[in-house]
Each structure stands twice: as structure tokens, then as C-alpha cells.
Design a protein around this nucleic acid. Sequence first.
DNA 1: ACAGCCATGTAATCGGTTACATGATTGG
DNA 2: CCAATCATGTAACCGATTACATGGCTGT
Lengths: 187, 187
Amino acid sequence: MIDVTDIEMVILGIVEKRGPCTPYFVRKQFEHSPSPHFSSSPGSIYPIIARLESKKWLLGRDDNTGKRNRKMYRISVAGRRALRKWLTPPLPRTAVGLTYDPLRVRMYFLNSLSPDEMTQFFDETIEQLQNELDRARRDLLNYDRQTDGFSWLAAKCGIKSLEARLRFMRDAASHVLTECDESTQVN
Amino acid sequence: MIDVTDIEMVILGIVEKRGPCTPYFVRKQFEHSPSPHFSSSPGSIYPIIARLESKKWLLGRDDNTGKRNRKMYRISVAGRRALRKWLTPPLPRTAVGLTYDPLRVRMYFLNSLSPDEMTQFFDETIEQLQNELDRARRDLLNYDRQTDGFSWLAAKCGIKSLEARLRFMRDAASHVLTECDESTQVN
DNA sequence: ACAGCCATGTAATCGGTTACATGATTGG
DNA sequence: CCAATCATGTAACCGATTACATGGCTGT
């Protein structure tokens, strides 16, 4: 019985940030997001928007300006209040503390691999990370820092995070692999 | 219908890493983990261990050596194979790409706050981050780098990640707040 | 004509968690 | 003796996702 979920607040935030919009538009925002965390499928978005409407945080009305049958949603005062509450410290520890990192958790179990497989692990993930970083840097160019300052900032934050992981993996690779060399020499 | 979930592999990995153990022991590992991502409650752990047993990746047997009624689980050959497959590149994009960061996503919506509230946001989260970092650094001392190299490495990775986030938040704070000052002066 | 996008929604499922429930052992 | 910890498990729930289903509009 959690108060609010992150995906609820993200959807609410999108409507607040981009102004009144359709569920379809929200869906596209998720689809084009560089972060793959949330699904952009209709079955994921529509029920949550319905929930937000039942909480009276989003107000929906049928929009018949065009020919198409579509529904516009705008944020309510209560919705804005909920969003600001979610943004206001103190944030829950789960929001500030260690985030979940699938790479980190794999590293924890890496001694289940042979030295050769470890080498492969580091080589390939470093390359994949480099690709992700390149992509993120290209994405950053899509944001206009002047008009969309916080989108730019969040994107930059993602890049910094990827950079840190890449740096760590490079360091770890050289440490782990030289240690393996040493033990090979001893044997 | 996902092949395997991360929590399954983490439990499998713990049994592989620490040797045959009880569900209770696995539970305590989660409980004492610095990463709060997975729940350590019985209702979370026991069903997953049962699932792993039904997949024949874990083999359980009643252990009556002591007085207590407990069940020991060990990893099977197939289990070890599954674990190594999970660790072997190419990893899924979701494992290598941008991880979900509750702080980053909040930053994306930060223009919903007033300048004062933004200041508060940065000040308090920076302090919370510093606390988390201190805690993580203390935790690192519990790992013996020699005997438990990859546990140490993973912990270090978590620290590096926290450091990167803290650095970013400090930078962002000064940038955002000086910009606010400028617009105040202009008005 | 028809592919592809706009646009909306539902049903079934799935994985995980909370809350509940039980009892034995151990240390102070 | 009593609190804390060891130790196991189940039932109900919950939120999110996949897969399914429908139909109109648009550009080629």
C-alpha cells in the first residue's frame, strides 16, 4: 500500500511539464526516452493514467477539435501538489542511496567465471558501455539547454553515471587481469 | 515470460559463492546488503528458492545435524551453468545501459519547484548522499580484499557510483543556483 | 489499395512483497 | 522466564507488463 509510485509521478510530471496531452503522447515520451526502465506499452500507460484520473490528479476530457477520437489530460492543482511533495526532501532512502546496477551485481559473482571468461566479460561490457555512452552523448544534443534546462541536466546526469561505470570497469579490468597474470606466473 | 530474473540469479549466486546454505542465511545476506533493492522478507525469498529447486538449479535436503529443523540448499551443475550464462556477454542492454536513478528522474521535473525549494532540494539531497557515501565507505572495511575480491570490487563500484552522483549534484546545484541569482538580478 | 501511424483500451498473467502464521532454540 | 533470534512457510495482494483487440486517418 505504497502512497505513490515513481511511474505515476513521472506521468504526472510529463503532463505538468509538456502541458495538456494525450495518453498517446505520454506513451511516445517513454518510447523515445533513453532510459529503458519503464515500459511504453499501452497496457502500461493507460491504466496508470486512469488511476491518476481517479485520484483527481489528472483531469481528462474528450477532445473533438480534430477528427480523431482522443482524450486530453491536464494536471489539477492537487496533482501539482502531489508532484511537488514527491520532489520535496527528505526523499526516501531508496531514492538517494545505492541504486540497482545489474553490472555491479554481476561483478559480485564474477569469480564463478574462468580468467578467460572474465577477460571477455570486461572487454565486451566495456565496449557496450562505450556504445551506450556515445548514444547518450548524441541524445544530449537533442536538448536545448536554454529552453529545457532540467531535461538537459538529467541527461547530463545519466552521462556522468555511465562515465563513472565505464571508468570503474576499465580500472577493475586492469586490476583483476594483472592479478590473474601474477597467479599464472606463480603457478 | 522472461527466461530468468535477476533476483533468481542473485540467490543462485549466493549459494554458489557461500556454499550450501539455508534460505534463512540467504535472507540475512539480503538483509545486511547495503543495496536495498531486493526485499529480504521470507515471502520474497522462499518462493524463489522453491522455484529454483523446481528448475533443478538448487538441490535442497533436510539437514538434521543440529537440533533445528532446517533445509540446506546446494547449487547443481545445471545451476552453475545457468549462473555462468547469466554472467557471460553479451549482456542485455538493460544491464549495461542507463540504470534507473530516482534522483535523476526527479531532477528532470525540478522546474516544478520554486527557486527556494530547489535550493532545499539540492542542499538536503547532497547531505543525504554524503551520509550514504560515508556509510558505504564504512561498509567497505568489512570486506577483506584478499579473500573476497569481487565482493570488495562490487562495493567499490557502488561507492564510485555514489561519488559520481554526489559530484554531479554539487555541480548542478551551483550551476542552477547561480542562474537563479542572475535572473533575480535582472528582474 | 494498403502500409503505417494515430489513438484507445482490456484481460490475463507474472513476479514480487506485505502480512500473517507457527514453533523451536538460545542467552541473559 | 522471557526476549531475541533461528527457521520455515503460505495467502492475499499489488503494480506493472505482455498480448490481444479495435478502428480511424494519412501519405504513397
